[in-house]
Simulated assay, not measured.
Amino acid sequence: MLEKFSIFSRRNRKRWLCAGVSLILTLCIGLTNIKASYAVSWVELLLRGVQVIQLSSISDKQEVALGKEINQQLINSGQARLYRGRAINNYVDSIGQRLAKTSQRPDLPYTFQVVNDKSINAFATMGGFVYINTGLMLAADNEAELASVIGHEIGHIVGRHAVEQMRQRAVSQGLLSAAGLDRSQAVQIGVELAVSRPNSRSDELEADRLGLENLKQAGYAPAGMIGFMQKLLQKGGSVPSFLSTHPATKERIQALQQQIDPATANAGDGLSESTYQQQISSL
């Protein structure tokens, strides 16, 4: 009886050993062949010691760290030439931090920076980095209008739009591996996205909605958001870059008008033109 049991055990051990080896080989083959369009396998990346980022499950900490690298590259490359005036930077930061506290991602360490550029522009990258051109500040009539632009850019960060755009760009360029995206490539894509700002119609409408809600929660007059967009469109000539990179501006204005009660549109802070001009006088 014991002899039969021993023979049975030996035979089953062999079967389990073969099954285990087969399973491991199957997993290795399967993982190294996930989505053949990916540039390299996760095994190769790990063997090369390349640091990768899994965009589908990126944490806030990882997003902020990546945003810092993108920000540094933007500055080092001269694509974001920062304005050095302390008073203007402090002013923009005070508005931004006020909005950040009432946003849907208040725990991010937001960084608001002024770019020394006469064009009417603003942009953001992942991890809480927001950039406002001096040209846009001069185009705004009051603080509520400036706050509306900052709120819109915070809306992109809240919606994690840059992370999704990075994933789409990496897939289209065949750079995404089974393990994720090479960190250095992620930084390069992040810089390209920050400059080109290829936001979709749905992203813009969501950033408008989130920005408007944030504007109201922070105590600013919601009329500032519509007022700024309408004024730029009515100026004539070429469309400012702040709007030209955003599709369907008229549609966006109509959507915002439906979200704002005319009776309370001017209720809130930031509508004084004289106070605003004093704040940006050093520009």
Rank of each mutant, 00 (worst) to 15 (best):
S9M: 15
S272G: 05
V52H: 08
Q51W: 06
D269S: 08
T102P: 05
S238I: 10
Q113M: 15
Q165A: 12
I120L: 06
V115P: 01
Q72N: 15
L136A: 08
S238Y: 09
L193N: 11
Y131M: 01
V130P: 06
V40T: 14
G236K: 07
N12H: 13
K118F: 03
D208E: 05
K101L: 12
I253K: 06
S272Q: 09
A248S: 14
Q279Y: 06
E204C: 06
T134V: 08
F242N: 09
I253S: 02
N214S: 11
N266I: 05
G219F: 00
G224R: 05
N116S: 12
Q278A: 10
F112M: 02
S57V: 12
I150T: 04
I280Y: 04
N76E: 14
H161P: 08
Q230P: 07
S103F: 01
I7R: 15
P222D: 04
F112K: 04
T125Y: 07
R209E: 13
I226G: 11
A80Y: 06
P222K: 02
A194F: 07
I70A: 10
V40K: 12
W42K: 06
N121T: 07
V114R: 00
R183G: 03
F242L: 15
L181Y: 01
A186H: 01
L271D: 03
Q173N: 13
G128F: 04
N12M: 15
G135F: 01
